[in-house]
């Protein structure tokens, strides 16, 4: 290989790596610098006393508190809905599926993983329309529908992590467990699932992050600018990413803009924290295995 080509490969690669990292630090640094100053109780609660807001005594209008509550409810609800279905599908794929059925379902999971979140949101919205027609207008886009939509969005990830975690259990262990007199179902629920628990847990944490950041899907399924703290499954709600989005396009003054930076920083910390947690789980899991 000529020297020129070698140098091109080496320094070209280092250059694009630096380019990517500087792009990352440029955008995130901007948020951290601008958002760092805004972090204060007033950012969350506006003019309401923090204790009153936390105890739901007084409604917060000028702060991010309702949006954070909305995002937390949404995230927990969707992952609660997605986990059982996702984990069970993962189990089915790794232990019971054979031949054509397995190929069909993996194709479904791959497709589902790629479907844009706005299209999933459109699905959630059509589902809401269906319910709206069926219940004669009592149920429309709402927290539950949004959570269901996000559950569909994160299910493929959970299915895959479950399947991968289960498939790393080696043949020797499987033979030993059968030799102990376990039926296939007993083996899965008493041995394989506990063994794969940290991998599945990690998938769940990543799903939490995905739900917290997604905006497009909830835009069509019931998120609004002001709704207060979520009060019912069938009510409208606020969410942090949507608040950031609306502030970016419709802010009216420097105060609101500062709130946008604060919200972006909070969301970044939330997602970064969830990612760090999942990395910790992966790290501990690896050290145990050694």
């Amino acid at each position: 290989m000529s020297l020129w080509k070698r140098l091109l490969i080496r320094y070209g690669s280092f250059f694009v790596t630096l380019l990517l990292l500087s792009g990352l630090f440029f955008f995130l640094g901007h948020i951290v610098l601008k958002g760092g100053n805004t972090l204060s109780p007033a950012l969350l609660f506006g003019e309401v006393a923090p204790m009153d807001a936390l105890l739901f005594k007084e409604r917060v209008f000028e702060g991010l508190f309702p949006a954070i509550c909305g995002t937390l409810c949404l995230v927990l609800l969707s992952v609660t809905l997605a986990l059982p279905a996702g984990v069970l599908t993962g189990i089915w794929l790794s232990h019971f599926a054979r031949g054509r059925a397995k190929r069909t379902l993996t194709l479904c999971v791959d497709t589902l993983a790629g479907v844009p979140s706005i299209v999933v949101g459109l699905f959630g919205f059509s589902f809401a329309i269906l319910l709206h027609t069926l219940t004669k207008g009592r149920i429309g886009p709402c927290l539950l529908i949004a959570a269901l939509t996000l559950a569909v969005l994160v299910m493929p990830g959970i299915i895959r992590t479950t399947e991968v975690a289960l498939s790393t259990i080696d043949r020797g262990t499987r033979l030993r467990v059968s030799a102990m007199g376990a039926t296939p179902v007993q083996a899965i629920f008493h041995v394989y699932l506990p063994m794969a628990a940290s991998g599945i847990f990690r998938g769940g944490v990543l799903a939490l992050g995905r739900c917290a950041e997604d905006t497009a899907a909830i835009m069509l399924t019931g998120v609004v600018v002001t709704a207060g703290v979520p009060y019912a499954l069938f009510g409208r709600f606020e969410a942090l990413p949507f608040a950031i989005f609306t502030i970016a396009s419709e802010y009216t003054g420097p105060e609101e803009l500062a709130r946008g930076y604060g919200a972006a920083l909070i969301l970044l910390i939330l997602c970064g924290g969830l990612f760090g947690l999942s990395a910790c789980i992966a790290c501990r899991f690896r050290s145990i295995k050694r």
Binding site: P84, A85, G86, V87, L88, T89, I91, W92, L93, H95, F96, A97, T104, L105, C108, V109, T111, L112, V115, V119, V120, L122, F123, S126, F127, I129, L130, V152, M155, I159, P184, V185, I188, F189
Partner: peptide
């Protein structure tokens, strides 16, 4: 029972993938 539940979940996943397409087609 465990296998039944897993098969059902797989059915849901399959159904949702088709339903996304189906709902949009319907509308």
């Amino acid at each position: 029972m465990g296998e039944g539940a897993a098969t059902m979940a797989a059915g849901i996943t399959f159904g949702v993938t088709l339903a996304i397409f189906g709902f949009m087609g319907w509308l």
